[in-house]
Amino acid sequence: MTLEEAQQQVDCWIKKYGVRYFSELTNMAVLTEEVGELARVMSRKYGDQSFKEGEKDNIDDEIADVLWVLLCIANQTGVNVTEAFARNLEKKTKRDNTRHINNPKLHDHGEE
């Protein structure tokens, strides 16, 4: 599935099952909530915290939730994510094409 297809599927789902998009500001709050849920799983799986009883490692679902809300925000603000991502990748490549390679901090862990 392409990003464009994902945007279209989200839009179709919202129109069929969701009645309408939440407001842009509500979706920004929902995005923040979803990123927090992803952070909780990450801190338990990769950090120093442990899972509480009843919690599960559902990192895949949490990432999908974040992507879903991002696609909702893109749809309702008229952003073509495919085009925006391509421009962003080009910007990063021009700006950082030697920055990370020349960063000794990234080579300190034997991962060259």
Rank of each mutant, 00 (worst) to 15 (best):
Q76M: 12
E83F: 10
L3Q: 11
D48I: 12
N102Y: 06
G47V: 03
G36W: 05
K92Y: 13
K52A: 03
E37A: 02
W68T: 04
L38P: 00
T26I: 10
G18I: 00
T98H: 12
E83P: 04
H107E: 01
N75S: 06
K16H: 11
L70P: 00
V19C: 07
G36M: 04
N88R: 13
H100A: 05
I101H: 00
I101F: 07
E111Y: 01
L70N: 02
C12V: 11
E112G: 10
V79F: 10
L71R: 09
R99N: 13
C72E: 13
N97Y: 14
R20H: 11
N102G: 05
V69M: 09
R99T: 15
D11P: 07
E5R: 14
F22S: 15
R40V: 06
T26Q: 12
S43Q: 14
H100Q: 10
L71V: 09
Y46P: 02
H107D: 02
E33R: 11
T2V: 02
L71C: 03
L67E: 13
Q7W: 08
E111G: 01
P104S: 11
E5V: 13
G47M: 09
A74G: 13
A6Y: 15
W13N: 10
E37V: 05
Q49G: 02
R99I: 12
H100L: 10
H109N: 14
F51Q: 03
G36E: 05
H109G: 09
P104I: 04
K45F: 05
V79Q: 07
G18C: 05
N97C: 13
